[in-house]
Deep mutational scan, measured.
Amino acid sequence: EEEKYTVIYPYTARDQDEMNLERGAVVEVIQKNLEGWWKIRYQGKEGWAPASYLKKNSG
């Protein structure tokens, strides 16, 4: 089951394993960790993003 989330704040990656996020983008969360960083898939790429910048899509 894919978990789709919408980006609610833009984010600029500060590290090579982080993802740039555009507000309104829909991403797939593939791994959650306890530090508040989630691994996401977006446009065929995978990387880490701050969970607080993502909002779960309803339905």
Rank of each mutant, 00 (worst) to 15 (best):
G47P: 01
E18N: 11
S52M: 04
E35N: 14
Q31D: 11
P10I: 00
N33C: 08
P10V: 02
P10G: 11
E28S: 11
D17V: 08
A25D: 12
S52H: 11
G24C: 02
E28Q: 11
T6C: 11
D15H: 14
T6V: 12
V7K: 00
Q16F: 03
G47I: 07
E3V: 08
G24Q: 02
K55I: 07
K4M: 13
L21E: 00
L21A: 01
I40F: 01
G59S: 11
R41T: 07
E1V: 05
E22Y: 07
I30F: 05
I30C: 10
M19P: 06
I30R: 06
Q16P: 14
Q43N: 13
Q43W: 02
K56F: 09
K45D: 12
K4Q: 06
L34V: 13
K55Q: 11
G47Q: 15
D17T: 11
Q16L: 09
A49L: 12
P50G: 01
I8A: 15
N57P: 07
A49W: 02
M19D: 01
A13K: 10
K56P: 11
V26G: 02
A13G: 14
E3T: 11
E46N: 10
P50L: 02
L34D: 15
Y5P: 00
K45I: 08
N20G: 12
Y53D: 02
D17Q: 15
L34R: 15
K45M: 15
A25G: 04
N57Y: 10
I30H: 03
S52N: 15
S52Y: 04
Q31P: 00
T12P: 06
E22V: 09
M19K: 02
N33G: 15
T6W: 04
G59W: 08
L34M: 12
D15V: 11
R23M: 10
G59C: 09
T6G: 02
E2F: 15
W37L: 02
S58C: 13
Y11V: 15
Y5K: 01
G24R: 01
V7Y: 01
E2G: 09
R41E: 01
V7D: 01
Q16T: 09
E35T: 15
Y42K: 12
D17K: 09
V7Q: 00
A25W: 08
S58P: 14
I8M: 09
K32F: 03
E28N: 10
N20M: 12
G44L: 02
Y42N: 09
K56N: 08
G24A: 03
E46W: 03
A49Y: 07
M19T: 10
E1W: 04
G36I: 05
V27I: 07
V7R: 01
Y11M: 06
I8W: 09
V29D: 00
R14W: 05
L21D: 00
R14P: 11
T6I: 13
E22D: 08
Y11H: 11
A13N: 04
Q31G: 12
S52R: 15
Y42Q: 09
S52W: 04
N20V: 08
I8R: 11
D17Y: 10
W48I: 12
